[in-house]
Design a protein around this nucleic acid. Structure first.
Ligand code: FES
Ligand code: FES
Lengths: 141, 141
DNA sequence: TCTATACTTGACCATTTTAGTCAGGTATGT
DNA sequence: ACATACCTGACTAAAATGGTCAAGTATAGA
């Protein structure tokens, strides 16, 4: 499994976006400044988020990005999937009968990784952007 | 967080070891052949497992490795820790007040990663080598 | 219409990590 | 003595990471 800056930044940027979204589109420049993320890198990330219909873009002056769904409809799973941050703990192809070692049977730890995958995914499927916003209002940033 | 071949192989090898352990020390060559893992790589891994008192070594002919604890006392946490496969999802230093971006406050996603870390760790802390052995006897490999 | 803003696309790259290999040891049971 | 098997450290090709850079295109507002 992977959890790299790309996934981290994606979530961070979207939380930031969601907080200002209701008024105007939010520019990447603003997010970049507020969150301390490279603008060029953000552009790569948002290009993927857009392809996956998580945000919409508005070009031109005063343009920026807006969420294309309500915060409670955007799960972390969706975000990670969009930026290719796959929660894949098994090594083998799931549908195949073959194991990760190329042998005819699944390896002796296959079930373990499969369980782990489910365990992690259940976390990401439950959490929505809205949950993050809420737990954020409690503190002040 | 990381989950790479090193951690995977460590668990795989230890399950294999645990199954033959009660009779004789198990040589890495055997594990290598049974599980299809490079012998040289296994040696690196077992060097770490030994340093962390998870296995003991017996040198010479008919030598090999044995578990240094009972299978139910070896949790996955211990194994991962031994091979430096850290479940670290937050980016910042936990004890510090500073955020991952170098700012004075924690970043807006800090709590999320912290929750995730606990979620994953609870899985690893519950699972022991014995659990893996059991779920393995049900199937035949 | 001009211009500043901000999205869009694609190529490029230095650094780090990964997943090993290789070469040489040392200890020990038979 | 000798085969087995642990032990150690150096080395490395290939991939992933975390960006940067350059050259656009679309649009709002003056
Ligand atoms: S992980 Fe599926 S066979 Fe090894
Ligand atoms: S992860 Fe802790 S401050 Fe960002």
């Amino acid at each position: 499994m992977k959890l790299t800056s790309k996934g981290r930044y994606a979530v961070m940027a979207l939380v930031d976006l969601a907080r200002f979204d209701n008024i105007n589109p939010v520019s990447l420049r603003d997010i970049s400044l507020r969150q301390g993320i490279s603008l060029d890198y953000l552009e790569q990330i948002f290009s993927k988020l857009k392809k996956n219909q998580i945000v919409k873009s508005i070009r031109g002056t005063q343009g920026g990005y807006i969420l294309s769904k309500k915060p409670n409809e955007i799960k972390l799973t969706n975000i990670f999937h969009a930026v290719d941050e796959k929660v894949k703990t098994v090594q083998c192809k799931k549908d195949s009968k073959k194991g990760c070692n190329g042998k005819a049977t699944k390896c002796i730890t296959h079930n373990l990784w499969d369980e782990l995958e489910n365990h992690i995914n259940s976390f990401f499927e439950k959490k929505s952007l809205e949950d993050l916003l809420k737990s954020n209002k409690e503190h002040r940033y």
